[in-house]
Design a protein around this nucleic acid. Structure first.
Lengths: 113, 113
DNA sequence: AGCATAAGGTTTGCACCGCAGACTTAAGGA
DNA sequence: TCCTTAAGTCTGCGGTGCAAACCTTATGCT
């Protein structure tokens, strides 16, 4: 049985951060989304969203495609295959952690050597 | 239907942080636990655990009881009623967010005014 | 008794992070 | 041409997590 510490060690903080968890989770249900769509959906400022997307892109979780420029610019965001897998994995870990609580700990407190 | 942004706004970051999520979730399944027990369980340094517990205590999520001193010191940690409720609430929000992805978004990308 | 040792926690210092808001770029209308 | 406005990017700052140094006090040893 995995201990919480093992779950923790494997927890992807890039994905776990609330805004990014919402982003990746939202993208899980579609092929991709527009910058503005995501902004309205998640409720972030443009600056914030941009920085979160950069972080996700750097981590290889999303792919970003730009078209147009100036007033016609459009930024399209989609999960990479890796990102889709990582997001699913993250939810799986969260579920496992939750089940630990539901099913009780293997060796209850207080701690004995 | 709640949008991800509403879920986000309500997401308790004190609880969401991985180490503290593991702590509160572990405590959910028992009446309380020993400092050392939690340390081994979650795999944190003493300093870190102490600081996380302080944050949780300040937020009214856990109650901390100390007995002994020096070498015989023991620190007992338990969720407060509020903390138990808050942790349960947090898991509920995470579930709601996850279901958004499973069931698809209400208005899929791209965004139109 | 006196001193060394070690267990149990706390505090500190630092590097990183998320956020809001200022700034930049460039298309289109008058 | 000049002004407006959409679409992103960049910057500064307050807050956060982490490891490691530090403090406090019981117990073992002589």
């Amino acid at each position: 049985m995995a201990t919480p510490s093992e779950e923790l060690a494997e927890m992807d903080r890039v994905i776990h951060e609330p805004a990014r968890l919402a982003l990746t989770t939202a993208l899980l249900s579609c092929d991709g989304a527009d910058f503005l769509f995501l902004q309205k959906l998640i409720g972030l400022t443009k600056g914030n969203l941009s920085s979160h997307l950069n972080k996700l892109q750097t981590a290889g979780i999303v792919a970003i495609t730009k078209s147009g420029a100036g007033r016609t610019a459009r930024t399209w965001v989609a999960l990479t295959d890796e990102g889709r897998a990582a997001t699913a994995r993250h939810w799986k870990r969260l579920d496992q952690l939750k089940h630990l609580a539901e099913n009780g700990l293997p060796d209850q407190a207080p701690y004995e050597e």
